[in-house]
Structures are given as structure tokens and as C-alpha cells.
Simulated assay, not measured.
Amino acid sequence: MKFINYLKSIDDVSIYPMVSLIIFSVFFLLAAWWAFRADRKMMDHISGLPLDDNDSLKKQ
């Protein structure tokens, strides 16, 4: 039996793609809004973290 036949047997299955699209869109818009509204100094600090040569990390 094909997978599509299982989906046809579920009542109101067409709502799930719409709900997932709405959740993704809201998350993307919130992330974009945060990125544009964030403080420039904080963004510079965050962008340098992967390259930061901190001595406290070497001790661990």
C-alpha cells in the first residue's frame, strides 16, 4: 500500500501542511525581526565567538 493511501484515510489531513507553513513563517519573521533590531555591539560580539581564542576554553 502506498503512503498516499494512508494520508487519505486521515480526517482533515490537509490542515497539517498549512499549520506547519504558518509555524515556519512566524519563526522566520521573528528571527528576521530580531536580527534587524538587535544591537550592533551584541551582533559583533556574537559573530566573533567562534573565532575567540579564550584561555578559559583551553583549561576545560
Rank of each mutant, 00 (worst) to 15 (best):
Q60M: 13
W33I: 04
D52S: 13
M43L: 15
A38L: 03
K41R: 14
I4R: 09
L30S: 04
I15L: 08
V26S: 03
M18K: 15
L21K: 10
F3Q: 12
L21A: 14
F24V: 07
R40D: 08
L21M: 13
A38V: 04
V26A: 07
A31V: 07
S47Q: 12
Y6V: 06
Y6H: 07
F24C: 10
S25P: 00
S9C: 04
Q60Y: 12
Y16I: 15
L21G: 11
H45M: 14
S9L: 11
M42W: 06
M1F: 09
F24N: 13
A38Q: 08
W33F: 13
I4C: 05
P17C: 01
A31T: 05
H45P: 01
N5L: 10
F24I: 11
D39V: 01
F24A: 15
R37G: 04
L30A: 05
V26C: 03
I4V: 12
D39F: 00
I46Y: 03
D39G: 01
I46M: 10
H45I: 11
A32L: 15
N5Y: 07
A32W: 04
R37I: 04
M1Y: 08
R37V: 07
M18S: 12
L7W: 06
M18T: 12
M43R: 12
D39I: 01
L51M: 13
V19S: 05
M42I: 09
Y6R: 11
S9N: 12
F3W: 10
K8R: 13
R37F: 07
